[in-house]
């Protein structure tokens, strides 16, 4: 099973890299970008085939290592 994890900064946490992306897009003439937020994408190939168990395991992985929950949120998509 594939687990695709997006890690993003929480709302209210300043994202200076996102700001820089936003400004550069503006300077390239791409108008209308209200905000840019940068995050991480992590893809795991896992042996577990049961979706509920896989979600539980990947959630534990996010809590323990993949995300820093002081500043980051995470979302998990599973695909058989």
């Amino acid at each position: 099973m594939k687990a695709r994890i997006h890690v993003t900064l929480k709302n209210g946490v300043l994202d200076p890299q996102g700001k820089a992306i936003e400004h550069t897009l503006g300077s390239l003439g791409f108008d209308g970008v209200n905000e840019a937020r940068q995050g991480k994408f992590i893809e795991l190939d896992i042996a577990e085939t049961d979706e509920a168990k896989a979600r539980e395991t990947v959630t534990a992985m996010c809590e323990k290592l993949l995300a820093n929950t002081v500043i980051e949120n995470y979302s998990i998509d599973l695909e058989q």
Binding site: V13, L14, P16, Q17, A20, N68, V70, I71
Partner: peptide
């Protein structure tokens, strides 16, 4: 407590 993020001026 807390976290250390990228410097605000990058």
């Amino acid at each position: 407590p807390g976290a250390l993020m990228r410097n605000s001026n990058l």
